[in-house]
Design a protein around this nucleic acid. Structure first.
Length: 159
DNA sequence: CCCTGATTCGC
DNA sequence: GCGAATCAGG
């Protein structure tokens, strides 16, 4: 390993198989090994480890689960996932406790207030979070994490 | 639009 | 054999 750039050595292939059998997606495997997604899937195809023509087992990413329509302007790069698997954990403290002391009704909402719905719409105690939403975000820091992809797609699509 | 995996094709 | 480009599905 001193000089050459080993493309697919045994270690990589083993790692590839391990991650593949572990249930990791090709994107995650690729990110972990350090190659492109196509490289990983191409190698898998060459190894005849493809699951047939099944496109995916997560069925499809659920869209429209958020109560608001504002979850549009989030590019959600995969760098977060990369940082996660690399152990970098680039994410700083993202508002742990959600303060629900400022909850308000729809009429009390303003531009800088969190619009996260509390309880069920139509219920008598239905209201909104009402916390301070930094920037022009529709939600406060805590609820933004819940609204926009909390993390990589980790078994949380049955909502 | 975004995501995903699978195949194709040039290197 | 390799992987980007492309295809195909959700």
């Amino acid at each position: 390993m001193p000089v050459l750039s080993p493309t697919w050595t045994n270690e990589r292939i083993e790692l590839l198989k391990q991650h593949f059998e572990a249930g990791l997606s090709c994107r995650e495997i690729a990110a972990d090994i350090g190659v492109s997604r196509n490289a990983v899937i191409g190698k898998l195809s060459r190894l005849n480890l493809t699951r047939g023509r099944t496109v995916d087992d997560r069925k499809v990413q659920d869209r429209g689960t958020a109560p608001a329509r504002a979850m549009r302007a989030v590019p959600r790069l995969q760098y977060q996932m990369l940082a996660t698997i690399y152990g970098e954990t680039d994410a700083p403290a993202l508002a742990g406790p959600i303060d629900d002391a400022n909850r308000c009704s729809l009429l009390e909402l303003s531009e800088n207030r969190c619009r996260w719905p509390i309880s069920t719409p139509g219920a008598e105690d239905f209201c909104f979070c009402g916390n301070i939403a930094p920037d022009s975000q529709p939600y406060c820091a805590g609820h933004s994490r819940l609204a926009y992809r909390p993390n990589s797609r980790v078994r949380v699509m049955r909502g």
